[in-house]
Design a protein around this nucleic acid. Structure first.
Length: 486
RNA sequence: CGGGGUGUGGCGCAGUCCGGUAGCGCGUCGGCUUUGGGAGCCGAAGGUCCCGGGUUCAAAUCCCGGCGCCCCGACCA
């Protein structure tokens, strides 16, 4: 494939590549307000497909959608001590409205635990009112000092699930269940396989008892926290008086969880699959899974070619493929090829006069794996029939490639601090070591290597042999994963 | 919030040192020819040179002061 114009190659400057590719693929654009962005139709279409996938999984696990307001009384935010300390630096606050200063200032939600548990308290009297399993799709605002398109913006779109339960066990199970939902979604839709596990104290959500996380490894070997699920214990229930009468007639505080993923997932998708030509969108997320490009020379040909293109598109639509015919007359086929590749459409169907004569189409993959040809000449009927299967295979190949890359860049059994430092100074990636649980070790690692403790991995991600030595010296109590993070 | 860079038609840039008609490429619009990997020719439109002040006969250019944006670091989904 020829070199792409306009995009900084990944190898030259990865961050510049990321910015270029997000803008050039028309996912998003900068807005006039620093730190906020406009999500353009192509990017928003991907987000809508993410929403559909996640929403289905939420419903399958018994959750309902609702909507809570954008503005939260400052006094609410201030109720939970850790919560306010965690979010105060990045709060945006409405102080004036209707031409005068407000008696009580209103925070623009950075997350909605406080308002939601306040409302739950009104709705719950008895254990019979539990559990409450709710989710909302909304925007939130965190006044970040340093922002990046999709990865960290002042305003972003997300979903936040909030549940209330009668017992701690049930709430803990919920937090783990949703972590697993996220994991499945990231694997099966985004083709971005995370390592799941628990956060250390220092990385825990402000106000949570325990935070669980999905950590994905990007192409530049930095970790992206792609989704989190929190067991909140009774911390918020106590502050918001969320109580119920138990079966035994006792008054008890409810147990809560909250969990969220955001448009950051789009950034993760770009950083996982993109190449020097543009982004690559996994078929399940692609607003257009197959683009049909008609090719002609003379007007007489154009009519027949367009007709055939529409016909093939209609037949593809019937097989459930999201398809678009690019019949624009002022662009050459080559220009269209580049454009749709830059935007990451998985498969392309080319139909020209030669194909009409042979009753064939040309099928081109955005990326290939193994011995797959990039371009194939197939009988029209076969191409149509095989398209859904090929999209599935494409989806699977992306996941496999991402998983292989993650494992190839995971360094296990590291016991020596110098080795950890060497990896972080060099190639980077996930580094598995033992840890005593002492925060001072985290601080030392961060200070000397810039890596942070991403996650205490769940059993299936742990190394075959449990480490015995802590990376900071002494005995290990657990295995942990270090990486430089986004 | 510190360090660096940058601000000139929609986009990318030159011009700034050394003041003197605001230019180039891409894109856009119109016409004709084109279309199997980023089309060609002809014509056209499009600019408070980031903002404010100052110096000067004259400022994109020199001086002073502001602002925006991007990148790099400290904090974060």
């Amino acid at each position: 494939m020829a070199e792409n114009k306009g995009l900084t190659p990944r190898g030259e400057d990865f961050n510049a590549w990321y910015n270029d590719v997000v803008l050039e693929a028309e996912l998003a654009d900068y807005s006039p307000v620093r730190g906020s962005m406009v999500i353009r139709p192509w990017g928003y279409g991907i987000w809508e497909n993410m929403q559909k996938g996640l929403d289905g999984l939420f419903r399958d696990t018994g959750h309902e959608n609702a909507y809570f307001p954008l503005l939260i009384p400052m006094s609410f935010i201030e109720k939970e001590k850790e919560h306010v300390e965690g979010f105060a630096p990045e709060l945006a606050v409405v102080t004036h409205a209707g031409g005068k200063e407000l008696e009580e200032h209103l925070a623009i939600r950075p997350t909605s635990e406080t308002i939601i548990y306040h409302m739950y308290a009104r709705w719950v009297q008895s254990y019979r009112d539990l559990p409450i399993l709710m989710n909302q799709w909304c925007n939130v605002m965190r006044w970040e000092l340093r922002t990046r398109l999709f990865l960290r913006t002042a305003e972003f779109l997300w979903q936040e699930g909030h549940t209330a339960h009668a017992t701690a066990q049930e709430a803990e199970a919920e937090a783990l269940q949703m972590l697993n939902v996220y994991r499945r979604f990231m694997e099966e839709w985004v083709a971005m396989p995370p390592v799941t596990g628990m956060k250390s104290e220092s990385e825990r959500f402000a106000g949570a008892v325990r935070s669980h996380s999905c950590e994905a490894l990007m192409q530049d070997n930095r970790a992206l926290q792609a989704g989190t699920s929190h067991f909140l214990g009774q911390n918020f229930a106590r502050q918001f008086d969320l109580k119920f009468q138990s079966e035994a007639g006792q008054e008890e505080y409810a147990w809560n969880t909250s969990w969220g993923v955001s448009t950051r997932l789009i950034g993760g998708m770009v950083l996982t699959h993109g190449d020097d030509v543009g982004i690559v969108v996994p078929p399940r997320l692609a607003p257009v899974q197959g683009v049909v490009v008609p090719i002609w020379r003379k007007e007489e040909e154009a009519v027949a070619v367009r007709e055939k293109s529409d016909e093939v598109a209609a037949r593809l639509k019937k097989t459930g493929v999201r398809v678009k015919v690019d019949g624009r007359g002022h662009l050459t086929p080559g220009a269209k090829f580049w454009e749709w590749e830059r935007k990451g459409v998985p498969l392309r169907v080319e139909i020209g006069p030669k194909d009409l004569a042979k009753e064939q189409v040309v099928l081109v993959r955005r990326v290939t794996s193994g011995e797959e040809p990039r371009k194939e000449f197939l009988p029209e009927a076969q191409a149509v029939a095989e398209m859904p299967g090929r999209l599935e295979a494409f989806q699977g190949a992306l996941l496999q490639a991402a998983r292989d890359r993650r494992e190839a860049n995971s360094h296990r059994g590291i016991t020596d601090f110098g080795q950890l430092q060497e990896i972080m100074d060099g190639p980077g990636g996930f580094v598995y070591t033992g840890w005593s649980g002492d925060p001072a070790v985290e601080e030392r690692v961060k200070a000397e290597t810039k890596a942070t403790l991403r996650v205490i991995p769940d059993p299936e991600f742990r190394s075959a042999t449990a480490p015995t030595r802590c990376i900071g010296g002494g005995d290990a109590k657990m295995e942990v994963v270090w990486a430089k993070a986004y």
